[in-house]
């Protein structure tokens, strides 16, 4: 499998924390689960790949689909992020969250509607489309965040501990739904988790980060 995402010798420094020589390769359509103990820099790596930590980057290159994205703006990378803290926009409804990316990109109205309906059906959000984030359960909020990230059909989907904090019942439900949608969409995915079981369900391959 050729490398769709290639990260080489990534060096990041944030205050006292530093990470050196991090390399990773993800094939097209592959889901790689990135595991490691707390504080080893998993989320920092994902956010650097997403282009949110440019000021912390010290060295290394990142290539996505043959394009060097090391210094590209976050929005120009074609990466969808589901952050650990979900971060839904309080003033937007669930539908507006799903429409957010496609609208920004100037998709045609019909296409946006079709995409939103497909995602809402796949993620079980049909009945929630008119709701604001306030009052959504943890599982619902995470499904909305996933839908928002997937709506643009990103080249790479990054899930940063997207299921943390869910109770057991919701966890199983959202995990199954996520796995199903990701399989259907055949998205290249980088998935950060603490849970080996979750990594085995979603990931084709597991990478273990070891603190130095």
């Amino acid at each position: 499998m050729s490398d769709f995402l290639r990260v080489e010798n990534l060096g990041i420094k944030v205050g006292e924390f530093s990470l050196d020589g991090f390399s990773l390769a993800v094939g097209e359509g592959e889901c790689v689960s990135l595991m490691g103990p707390s504080g080893c820099g998993k989320s920092t790596v994902v956010e650097a790949i997403c282009g949110l930590r440019g000021q912390w980057l010290r060295s290394g290159t990142m290539v996505l689909n043959g394009v060097d994205i090391t210094h590209a703006a976050a929005g120009a990378r074609g990466i969808g992020l589901v952050p650990q803290d979900v971060v839904l926009f309080p003033s937007l409804t669930v539908r507006e969250h799903l429409e957010f990316g496609p609208r920004l990109r100037g998709w045609k109205r019909g296409l946006i509607k079709e995409r939103v309906e497909n995602l809402a059906e796949g993620l079980g959000l049909e009945s929630l489309l008119g709701r604001l984030p306030e009052g959504l359960s943890g599982g619902e909020a995470r499904r909305v965040a996933l839908g928002r990230a997937m709506a643009l059909c990103p080249r790479l989907l990054c899930l940063d501990e997207a299921l943390s904090g869910l109770d057991e019942e919701r966890y199983e439900e959202v995990l199954a739904m996520m796995g199903q949608v990701m399989k259907e969409e055949k998205m290249t995915t980088l998935h950060v988790t603490h849970s080996r079981a979750e990594a085995e369900v979603l990931g084709d391959r597991i990478c273990q980060m070891v603190p130095v």
Partner: peptide, 24 residues
């Protein structure tokens, strides 16, 4: 974080300010 996530979805800083921060 709101701006960061909005920017990861394709917003420029100004758009993130207008669409995500200002309403809050």
């Amino acid at each position: 974080r709101y701006e960061e996530v909005a920017m990861s979805l394709g917003c420029q800083r100004g758009q993130a300010f207008k669409m995500v921060v200002l309403p809050q």
